[in-house]
Design a protein around this nucleic acid. Structure first.
Lengths: 142, 142
DNA sequence: CGTGTTATGTTATTGCATAACGCGGCAATC
DNA sequence: GATTGCCGCGTTATGCAATAACATAACACG
């Protein structure tokens, strides 16, 4: 697990990425700032600049519906502009998934309207499996 | 089924809805506020409260990636929690579409992870047909 | 060195959204 | 008719999100 595939990150970028990578959920820019104040970060631009770079590198995703950020954990995140997220509103966990059929559907819809798709934001809100069935056999499906 | 026409809206709600409906694209809450200052609106909560109600009624959608709002123009907008938007970054026009296959894909993905989907945010960014292939360049574009 | 470039630090501001308080109309009840 | 409770409304103030603008440091390279 060396940083073989990781491009050279600056100190701030490393700090921000580590914070996101070690978090168990999405973090807002200001939360990151607070966490890294001891490390020397003191103002929003330092965080936002690092985030911008990390997003460019495909190492971090921005969650539009949360105004928050997560480290990319997609097994084979080949297309960072078409990531799909499932966001549990009970535990705040975020899962990133890639689905070929879904991507195809998106592309097909866009093409049907002669729309040149450059980026797809897909964020699914709901309740994750663990939070739906926490050792409880209740059939609360809706 | 499709409710005949507009449910009883309060004055502020009507003002906000009219502003959105007559706009040729999405508006931010503060833009709406500015436009309606002459009509008596003076503070953000008045706009946000109206927007909240209009969204509940399914008459308005919030565009998460723009922090903006549009009147619902979906021909048969039966499911306001699964609307799909195509957002042209050249002309700022927004098209709302409903696609059965896409919706099915979303539901299938969610189910595959035992994820109880409550709301899907799908916002496609790119360039619309008119902006990709400008048939006539007489419009004072940009 | 001097210069260009890149990363950084800092202050201030803009933009987006909501908390919190209080008022006034209005229907239901007494 | 007065009392009460709800609801929409108006207002102030605040908090969070993001960026503009400017100044500095660190470094590569001729």
């Amino acid at each position: 697990m060396t940083s073989s595939s990781v491009p050279p990150l600056t100190k701030n970028q490393s700090l921000v990425y580590t914070a996101l990578n070690e978090a168990d959920g999405p973090l807002t820019a200001y939360t990151i700032l607070d966490q890294l104040r001891d490390e020397g970060l003191r103002a929003p631009p330092q965080v936002y600049r690092s985030l911008e770079r990390l997003i460019d590198l495909g190492m971090v995703h921005r969650l539009e519906t949360l105004n928050a950020f997560v480290a990319c954990r997609h097994p084979s995140c080949e297309d960072h502009t078409h990531a799909v997220f499932m966001i549990c509103e009970a535990c705040d966990q975020v899962a990133e998934v890639g689905d070929k059929t879904l991507t195809n559907s998106l592309n097909r819809v866009a093409r049907g309207y002669d729309f040149a798709l450059s980026k797809a934001v897909v964020e699914l809100h709901g309740t994750c499996a663990q939070c739906v069935a926490p050792t409880d056999a209740r059939e609360g499906k809706e």
